[in-house]
């Protein structure tokens, strides 16, 4: 398998606190990989480190084999990696449409600069995002802070898609949402993947993660404790990897 994104002994710290202890992962082209783990396992840290939001060594992250660790986040976006960040991080005070336009603007700028687009070939447009989440067309002029949590999550996903990613990093997109809204959001996944975009899904809901992904990594205290095909991994294996039961920590 040729990996579009891979990490090699990825280490990250917050000051003196080490949050990741050598994480090795691989994401194949067009693949969907889930990353699960308890609170504080280091899932968000992993995504932030990949995105260039934390200082990491160059060789620790590769995109199409090219070392890109520690590249600034805006450059990572241009290289085709986009993120739906933890907590959504929408641009408060701006309308739904303006939030989306920021991504469109930057993608256009990058495309203009690079001549041919260095990023993805997803061809995401405002219209396609509206087709995916029709409510966003209806609420185009609404300030994002007055949307419901689910609608805000849709804006965050739409914004990331309009960065035209080849790799999409999603951090707990189901968090705090009603089951119906979660289904609505996860229903968008096949369409996103159909464009050839590979996805890393960080997810608290193990069942959801397992059913939505091809492969799965489980993290515990900054380490990968389980990796395998989502369909083949048993609940017992996950439980053990998730909570560290019976895991002799050397």
């Amino acid at each position: 398998m040729s990996a579009v994104l891979s990490t090699h002994g990825l280490v990250a710290r917050y000051g003196d606190f080490q949050a990741l202890y050598g994480v090795d992962t691989e994401l194949g082209a067009g693949e969907c990989v889930a990353l699960i783990g308890a609170n504080g396992a280091g899932k968000s840290t992993f995504l932030r480190a990949v995105m260039g939001l934390l200082p990491v060594a160059r060789e620790m992250v590769r995109l199409d084999g090219e070392p890109v660790g520690g590249t600034a986040p805006d450059r990572m976006v241009q290289k085709g990696v986009a993120i739906v960040p933890e907590g959504r991080r929408l641009f408060t005070g701006m309308s739904v449409e303006d939030n989306l336009r920021v991504a469109i603007d930057q993608a256009a700028r990058a495309a203009g600069k690079a001549g041919a687009r260095a990023g993805g070939k997803g061809g995401w447009t405002l219209k396609r995002v509206h087709d995916l989440f029709p409510i966003l067309a209806e609420k185009a002029r609404t300030p994002v802070q007055s949307l419901s949590g689910g609608q805000q999550q849709m804006v965050a996903i739409g914004r990331a898609l309009l960065c035209q990613p080849r790799v999409l990093l999603c951090d707990e997109i189901s968090l705090g949402l009603a089951p119906k809204v979660i289904r609505e959001i996860y229903a968008a996944l096949p369409e996103i993947r159909a464009a050839g975009t590979a996805v890393i899904l960080v997810e608290q809901d193990v069942g959801l993660a397992q059913s939505a992904s091809d492969r799965l990594y489980c993290m515990l205290e900054g380490r990968v404790t389980l990796a395998g095909k989502s369909a083949e991994i048993s609940r017992a294996q996950i439980g053990e990897a998730y909570f560290g039961v019976g895991h002799a920590v050397a």
Partner: peptide, 11 residues
């Protein structure tokens, strides 16, 4: 509004 989120959007 959010400089880190802006960077994550390509700015």
């Amino acid at each position: 509004a959010d400089v880190e989120a802006a960077a994550m959007t390509g700015i």
